[in-house]
Nucleic acid binder design. Structure first.
Lengths: 213, 213
DNA sequence: ATATGTGAATTGATTCACAGCG
DNA sequence: CGCTGTGAATCAATTCACATAT
């Protein structure tokens, strides 16, 4: 068991997506080879990633799509649903609150927060916007597990502190800023401006894209 | 020189952000120690990351903020601006098109595309929406370098093919799907649903968050 | 005196080759 | 016979220790 690469977790999410697509197409069986092709990794990698968690296939035959899908959902903690709050109801926060079928993705929107008095009391996507001072109470009452930070980079650390204080367990950080939280709280950055700047680097330095002689 | 870790590029973006913040505060000098603390990495890591590209500091004294900032911008290809097109003018595409000060981030929005006849011809954020069949012409005419994919996961591969065909050089993929492009085209995924599922895993498996005895 | 820059050592992740099972 | 599961080998990334420059 020991230590599981973070890249493995990212790939499990990709495998799960592929399995869900296969299942919706009525395909019953697959193989490490096939999953590897769809996920654009090696078949070794697929098998090694799965081996961290157990044995899910049949030698000589491959994997049963619904079984492996169920196992991956269990591994990823998707047998339960997670309650989510959004801090920052600017354009981005509103776009996410209105994301179509957000609730079908095993994550349920339970709270919206903003410091702007204009926004407090407004209803967005069927939920009232509260001041962040209500966070501790509402996190407890509604069983909120995860917070989205969609405030400005300057306010991101304050929002993170408020979420941690309120007893949240994980943070999805959309702000272009590094936030500092206790190590038992997991943070996932979602940062398209950083992605753009990485793109800029790789376009400008194409020789680093596989050392083509 | 040889091969630069992709994680190094991500960290350079973070260092640049910190330097820009320091500069806006009028701070003139910094150190690997200080940058490390802000970026939440080790000082060794900061120095090693910079060493891939040259020598930017003064021994015994540290780094000059404006100098290192300029050097990082050069390394990341941000001495020029990049022209961007968005494929998919649904909610997400519209939210990005209206992102405040998008243009101040060294990236300039030059084209909007959608297959929906209702959307074609509409003006969003001062730009007309075109059918993707116009991509090759407009990419050439407007010198578009980068495409954002903000279509459904089912349409993501079609959008990617169209962008590659039109001669784009990099893709920011917001769709929750793996896309397949020639290896000289760089793709950066921006996938908040995947981030959420990784969060779910780490919340469910807190022991993997630093092996606390 | 102090903080960078860098080869060497260590740790971690991926690839490989094949043993094991259906 | 085919494809999974896995220890061993390779490759890559990070950490360390210290020589080096100011």
């Amino acid at each position: 068991m020991s230590t599981i690469p973070t890249a493995t977790i990212s790939r499990l999410v990709t495998y799960l997506r592929i399995l869900e697509q296969l299942e919706s197409q009525g395909i019953k069986r697959t193989s490490s080879e096939h999953l590897a092709e769809e996920a654009q990794v090696s078949a070794f990698q697929v098998r090694k990633d799965l081996a961290y968690f157990g044995r899910f296939g049949t030698r000589g035959a491959g994997y049963t799509v619904p079984t492996l899908r169920r196992e991956l959902r269990r591994i990823l903690g998707l047998t339960r649903s997670w309650n989510v709050a959004i801090i920052g109801m600017g354009r981005l926060g509103q776009a996410i609150a209105n994301y179509p079928n957000f609730d079908s993705y095993d994550f349920i929107l339970k709270g919206l927060f903003d410091t702007d008095p204009e926004k407090i009391g407004q209803s967005i996507s069927g939920l009232e916007v509260f001041h962040p001072e209500q966070l501790p109470r509402l996190v407890k009452e509604k069983g909120i597990d995860i917070g989205f930070i969609t405030v400005s980079p300057e306010a991101a650390q304050i929002a993170a502190d408020a979420l941690v204080q309120a007893g949240i367990r994980g943070i999805l950080n959309f702000a272009p800023a590094v936030i500092n939280v206790p190590k038992e709280i997991h943070v996932e950055p979602v940062d398209f401006l950083a992605g753009l700047k990485r793109l800029s680097f790789y376009i400008q330095n194409p020789q680093l894209k596989e050392e083509l002689a």
